[in-house]
């Protein structure tokens, strides 16, 4: 969440400037995307199509088309989690400038740029997962009952970097209690310079829902 006193102590960086600076310093990877300068501006592809001949890729020109590209996986299954490593191949998106590129990137990986800028400038404060659970009401109030090991178990199963989610977790279980059982790529917030990390600043609703399922099963098993 935003740090309450941050705006006065840290003048906000322009997101467009941050994106431009990252690109100028060699940035080209975001999640499964690869971004290159082209004659008409900027071209975005699936990184596995980096070497593909343009004639084999379907061209798109509107940033909103990024949303459609990211909507279903190869098997036609809906992708509610955009950071899932299931982005389809076979397309290229060409946009004229970095402002339009920013719009498109926010459709592929919502808030990735904003979270990265907020995190690296100290304006975002990662929220411990137990605090997220403790805040829930209604049907999710029960997630406040997860203990530290429950949290580790649910995160390991729900957020797996290789198969489930390419976001990199910045938050601990609780203050002073780190998530130290995850593979390093899941928590490394500073990958090589050419890659912009998709940061997870707080547990998402998918994890909250998984936590609810976990604790209900655990309680049922305990009788």
């Amino acid at each position: 969440m935003e740090s309450p006193d941050s705006p006065s102590s840290f003048p906000p960086l322009s997101l467009d400037d941050a994106l431009r600076h990252w690109l100028e310093s060699g940035g080209q990877r975001l999640g499964e995307l690869v971004i290159h300068r082209c004659g008409e501006g900027w071209e975005v592809r699936h990184h596995s199509d980096a070497a593909a001949d343009v004639s084999t890729l379907t061209r798109h020109d509107r940033p909103e088309e990024a949303r459609e590209i990211a909507r279903y996986d190869d098997a036609g299954q809906y992708r509610p989690l955009k950071a899932a490593p299931t982005l389809v191949r076979g397309w290229r998106l060409v946009v004229p400038d970095t402002a339009t590129l920013r719009t498109a990137l926010d459709f592929f990986y919502p808030a990735a740029l904003g979270n990265w800028v907020a995190f690296t400038s100290g304006r975002a404060v990662p929220v411990p997962v137990k605090a997220t659970f403790a805040r829930q009401t209604g049907m999710y109030r029960i997630t406040g009952l997860l203990d530290d090991d429950d949290c580790r178990t649910v995160v390991a199963a729900t957020c797996d970097y290789a198969t489930r989610c390419r976001r990199r977790i910045t938050w601990p279980v609780a203050p002073g209690i780190p998530l130290d059982t995850l593979p390093p790529e899941k928590t490394d917030t500073a990958p090589p310079d050419h890659e912009l990390p998709i940061l997870c600043l707080e547990a998402c609703s998918l994890l909250v829902a998984a936590a609810r399922t976990h604790i209900k099963k655990k309680r049922a098993a305990a009788g």
């Binding site: 935003e2 989690l81 955009k82 919502p110 808030a111 904003g114 979270n115 907020a118 600043l201 707080e202």
Partner: peptide, 9 residues
């Protein structure tokens, strides 16, 4: 996504 908690960024 984006979630309510990150949209202000």
């Amino acid at each position: 996504e984006p979630g309510f908690r990150e949209v202000m960024h």
